[in-house]
Simulated scan of single mutants.
Amino acid sequence: MRIVRTAVPLVLASGLLSGCAGLVQSDWPPCAAVGGVVGAGLGAIESASWAAGGLGIGALTGAAYCWVHGDADGDGVVNKEDKCPDTPRGTQVDERGCPLPVAAAPAPEPEPMPEAAAPVRVELDVKFDFDKAVVKEESKADIKAVADFMSEYPQTTTTVEGHTDSVGPDAYNQRLSERRANAVRDVMVNEYGVSADRVDAVGYGESRPVADNANAEGRAINRRVEAEVEAKQ
């Protein structure tokens, strides 16, 4: 009968103290109270005089059990193994109860710099007969293309450059190159409506050949008027 009387309270004590393990650190008074009741009960089994002593011992035991086996910050790691006991609730922790390192957010990739728009350009190359400064009809389509481009980009200007071959005196060729440049300018301004202040004309005589003046083919290439217009999109 003595064994039964002792075993029942011990089983009860074990169950109650195990329940205390689920309480947080601040709830140790209930654990102490539970331990005290159980301790008093165990003492009373022996005799009434042991009840008071059992109460005190049980209270201390319950409180200590709660402290050791409880989880004060609710992170899933019991107090005796928790190296970071004050972790805020909901924080992800490691096996020691300490917060897991937060992975740094990847740095945003720099936005690609927009590519600068390539400028658009139109070039003019008008050929002339020997010792002539008259614009041929078949060249006017090319001149018109330049005039249309300048109308599309009204901020543009151009310089029309006249050239000759090497036949004849330098001074004569200089004046001939200027007449050729002005002839092309007149077509742009008078026939295709380009404002006169947007087109300059200059002659370089025979000083800037692009082909060999020693043969007829090269001299025909050098008898020319050139112009270039560039605009930003």
Rank of each mutant, 00 (worst) to 15 (best):
P101S: 06
P110M: 09
G90I: 01
A51K: 10
V4Q: 04
R89P: 12
G203Y: 07
A52Y: 00
G74A: 04
P110K: 10
L23H: 02
D82G: 01
D212G: 01
P29M: 05
V225E: 06
A183M: 07
N79M: 12
V202M: 03
A211K: 08
E217N: 09
A133Y: 09
G58Y: 03
A118N: 10
P30Y: 10
V37D: 05
N79D: 14
G19R: 02
P106M: 02
Y65E: 09
E109V: 00
M113W: 05
L176G: 04
T164H: 02
T6Q: 07
R89K: 15
L16K: 02
T157L: 13
W28K: 03
Q92V: 11
G62A: 09
N190I: 15
S18M: 14
A220Q: 11
V135I: 00
A33Q: 07
E81Q: 13
V134S: 11
L55D: 08
P169L: 15
A227P: 08
D186E: 14
P108S: 09
V120R: 06
N213A: 03
M1H: 09
I57S: 14
K127D: 12
A214F: 02
P99N: 02
E109T: 00
K83M: 12
V134M: 07
V210T: 13
P154Y: 03
V77S: 00
F128K: 10
V134H: 09
V199R: 05
P112G: 08
P209Y: 04
D125L: 13
V93L: 04
M113P: 03
A220N: 09
G168A: 07
V160N: 10
H163E: 10
P88I: 00
G39D: 03
P114D: 01
L12M: 14
P114M: 00
A52I: 07
Y172G: 10
A32S: 11
G205H: 03
W28N: 08
A171Y: 06
P9A: 07
P106R: 05
D71E: 02
G22I: 07
G54L: 12
G97S: 10
V77F: 01
A33K: 06
V78S: 12
M1K: 12
A145P: 03
P119R: 03
F130V: 14
A32N: 09
E137L: 11
R96V: 13
N215E: 06
V184M: 02
A117M: 11
G203L: 08
G15L: 15
S139D: 11
R223K: 00
D71W: 02
A21T: 12
S18D: 11
A104E: 12
V187H: 08
P112S: 07
A118K: 15
P209T: 08
G70S: 03
V199S: 04
R175I: 02
A40I: 13
S49L: 11
T156R: 00
C20K: 06
C84F: 09
G19W: 13
G97A: 06
D129A: 15
A214W: 05
A7C: 05
E81S: 13
A33W: 00
E137C: 06
S151R: 15
V135P: 08
K144A: 06
G41P: 10
Y192H: 13
E228F: 06
